[in-house]
């Protein structure tokens, strides 16, 4: 094995390299080539942060409008609630775009010097801050619906809200209370389809439930043999303007101060009725 002594004469390397440079017409690549390469890295990194931030804003929007305050009534456990409420598509998109941010930061001229943890933190913080910024400027819904339209497997929150709560035959209905007759045991609600529905509660809705016209409510109940009439079991009141407008196709004016409250009224017939329970149709009366 030849190890130390090369058979090539001193200075032979420089001659052969220079000869090769001349023969093959090799020139140093221009500086702009390297600057552009670095610039492309930073641009791609910036774009990845931007997309990751959109995902964060969408994620925050969905989490914000999940029904946290009533999860005990709607789900068997917090875990089951999280399975429904956690916007997995946005979360996956955020993680997917965090990976290129990490790699692009590492590929910059000095990026290798920084530890894994530091680069991950910088990527997380930069994406998170921009995402919170988007959300704070009220872009959450726009991102969830408009940007989300380009994201595979994504169903915007408000579209899910409409789909889930406009099923009177399954005992789920959401809409604006139109009339709460004095001394009545039921009230009239206008659903997202514009049709009037009668919700029978079997209690004095004025004095016991304190329902008021104009409120946005979700009703879980049991369909009756008469179309348009539901036996109401649970009423969720959440005066979030954005939900009200989304569900009702922005037909109605807001009239409440946004106070959240939940009213649950269980009758004998409603025993064991749970609002979501995997969205299975409620049993016939």
């Amino acid at each position: 094995m030849d190890t130390h002594n090369t058979k090539h004469k001193e200075g032979g390397m420089s001659e052969s390299v220079l000869a090769c440079i001349v023969r093959d017409g090799i020139c140093p690549r221009p500086r702009w080539h390297f600057l552009m390469k670095e610039g492309v890295m930073w641009t791609l990194g910036g774009l990845s942060i931007f997309v990751g931030a959109l995902a964060i804003a969408g994620l925050l929007f969905e989490l914000r409008y999940a029904w946290w305050d009533v999860y005990e009534a709607t789900h068997d456990s917090f875990f089951m609630f999280m399975l429904d409420a956690l916007p997995l598509v946005w979360l996956i998109l955020f993680i997917l775009f965090l990976i290129p941010v990490y790699h692009l930061l590492r590929s910059t001229s000095r990026g290798y010097r920084y530890s894994f943890l530091l680069v991950v933190c910088v990527s997380l913080v930069s994406t998170g801050v921009m995402g919170v910024g988007f959300y704070s400027f009220g872009m959450g819904r726009f991102i969830d619906e408009r940007v989300g339209a380009f994201v595979p497997f994504h169903n915007p929150l408000l579209s899910r809200e409409r789909m889930t709560w406009m099923k009177p035959t399954d005992g789920r209905l959401a809409g604006i209370i139109r009339e709460v007759p004095y001394g009545d045991t039921g009230f009239w609600l206008e659903g997202a389809d514009g049709s009037p529905y009668r919700i029978e509660m079997n209690v004095d809705v004025n004095s016991r439930l304190m329902l008021r016209a104009g409120e946005y409510v979700r009703v879980v109940g049991m369909p009756t043999t008469t179309p348009g009439i539901l036996e109401g079991c649970i009423i969720f009141m959440k005066n979030d303007d954005i939900l009200r407008r989304a569900h009702m196709h922005e037909k109605f004016e807001t009239n409440e101060e946004g106070e959240r409250k939940i009213l649950i009224s269980r009758t004998k017939e409603c025993k064991d009725v749970r609002p979501y329970v995997r969205f299975a149709p409620l049993p016939e009366r």
Binding site: M13, V17, C20, I21, I26, C27, P28, R29, P30, F34
Partner: peptide, 15 residues
């Protein structure tokens, strides 16, 4: 290998 190294160095002097 050395020749390749020096040629690469020359090509990338601006880097």
């Amino acid at each position: 290998v050395l020749q390749d190294i020096f040629i690469k160095v020359y090509r990338n002097l601006n880097a």
